[in-house]
Design a protein around this nucleic acid. Sequence first.
DNA 1: TCAACAGTTTAGAATGATTCTAGGGATGAA
DNA 2: TTCATCCCTAGAATCATTCTAAACTGTTGA
Lengths: 141, 141
Amino acid sequence: MTENPSHNRPYSGVIARLKGAGLRPTRQRIALAKLLFEGENRHVTAEDLHGEARAAGVSVSLATIYNSLHQFTDAGLMREVVVEAGRSYFDTNTGDHHHFFHEDTGSLEDIPGDQINVSELPAAPAGKSVQRVDVIVRVSA
Amino acid sequence: MTENPSHNRPYSGVIARLKGAGLRPTRQRIALAKLLFEGENRHVTAEDLHGEARAAGVSVSLATIYNSLHQFTDAGLMREVVVEAGRSYFDTNTGDHHHFFHEDTGSLEDIPGDQINVSELPAAPAGKSVQRVDVIVRVSA
DNA sequence: TCAACAGTTTAGAATGATTCTAGGGATGAA
DNA sequence: TTCATCCCTAGAATCATTCTAAACTGTTGA
């Protein structure tokens, strides 16, 4: 079996990842994690992911999509990006980077961290610490 | 009458401002513009402003609050700041600046434009132009 | 001054995303 | 296998926001 390509042992990496995050590897979480973490980094909404799961033949309720997305985010496996009131994107790229937001299509595009430099940041207000700095470059035609 | 302080001729500046923006100076818009533009710069939600209007004895429907906020924003009198899914803030400061977002209280604080420097910004994707660059510094205790 | 049109406001319904609820199901330790 | 615990689910509920249709107001021109 050692010659099997990855699609023949589809669960290994994802299960380890879930366990490492302290999340029980349930059928639903495994399926969603596969969709999210195997392959390229992506930006998805809850509805997007719900549709993909259905398309992949996996039956998952929307409530579970929301739960999982938040659990993955809390566990540091993804992060939430807010660019438009009323809709949240979840980003599988947790590394140092920022975003272009295409106002006409509503889509996000990564900007690698080394392509943006934020300097002269003022100190956090007393007693507070900086959790994250988000840079959103809004573009349109 | 030339000695009257501004609270005795409360409408002059605000009416000119509305007319200049191509907006008919109606009773509601005048009242909201007074709350928003007289005094310090502020960050308000639609609900905030609705509450303030009521407290000031002005009867304005929530729909009109939303309409006005969007009209003021479209006219360049304010701008919208999105930091949390599900809630929009409107900012009366249209100048060059960014924001601290206090994750524990849900409030915004201005960072003057000269206290942040964003450099090495990549070019906008082909055919697109940059509308705005937002920097949000998320802080918490 | 006043009619009359266009722009505004409004209450309430509708929408859309997200969260909650309660009950049945799956998981993992022993 | 057992059982306590954690999960999942359908559907209801919630929240911010937008829409609708009808009533109202500001402005303009006679």
